[in-house]
Design a protein around this nucleic acid. Structure first.
Lengths: 106, 106
DNA sequence: TTGATATGCAGGCATTTACCTGCATATTGG
DNA sequence: CCAATATGCAGGTAAATGCCTGCATATCAA
């Protein structure tokens, strides 16, 4: 997994919404996704391209249509490799800050 | 929490590295962080500013120094509000994709 | 006080990004 | 076949981004 591609893909609100819509209803075509996206089809295509490049979605061609499916694996990997690490130290980090603030005030 | 600010802040590798360094050693000054960052102090300041704006770090002034501390809360909130949602549907989404692929091939 | 140190702030510049328009290609149904 | 439909591809542009330089301000230590 390319951490950077995943984070950059998630950085855009349009792309997060596309993932939301696919989460609500998986396997939609480009046309279906465009109906609700208030921008040109070609722009949506670009966003979907970045999502696919980050491996956040997978696509299947069916005739002249292209179906889009969420690939939840990289999201989970982001959590595993990056978020959880910070979570583990959560309380101790807050404790450090509290200590520092108290030290300063006295 | 501002989802967008958090995601955008996490989108840059330099900022993720800053969080990594603060995770390894919390409460570092700007100067300390600059020593290892291979870019001008002013650029690091900008990155730290975005991290603070996203509430990913907190700062404490101590004399002429500025100490930086990780604030793990928004990272956890990103996980709670966004990552976990996708995690919950993980298996079923993979099942959808498998179904679709099989349907197409037959 | 004064020189050294630590950080703040403003502006410039090259790259990337996100959107667009215009046109090309591929598939389906009649 | 042919018209309608669904998507692909190639630029163009305005705004955002990331890095820089130059200078200002604030604190410490002798």
């Amino acid at each position: 997994m390319d951490d950077d591609k995943v984070f950059k893909a998630l950085a855009d609100p349009t792309r997060r919404e596309l993932l939301d819509r696919l989460y609500a209803r998986n396997g939609q075509t480009l046309g279906q996704l465009c109906e609700t996206m208030d921008m040109k089809r070609q722009s949506v295509t670009q966003h979907l391209g970045l999502l696919e490049d980050a491996n956040l979605i997978s696509t299947v061609r069916r005739g002249r249509e292209k179906l889009h499916y969420i690939n939840p694996v990289p999201v989970y990997e982001v959590y595993e490799r990056w978020v959880r690490k910070f979570e583990e130290g959560r309380l101790s980090l807050l404790y450090d800050l509290k200590q520092e603030l108290e030290r300063k005030q006295t």
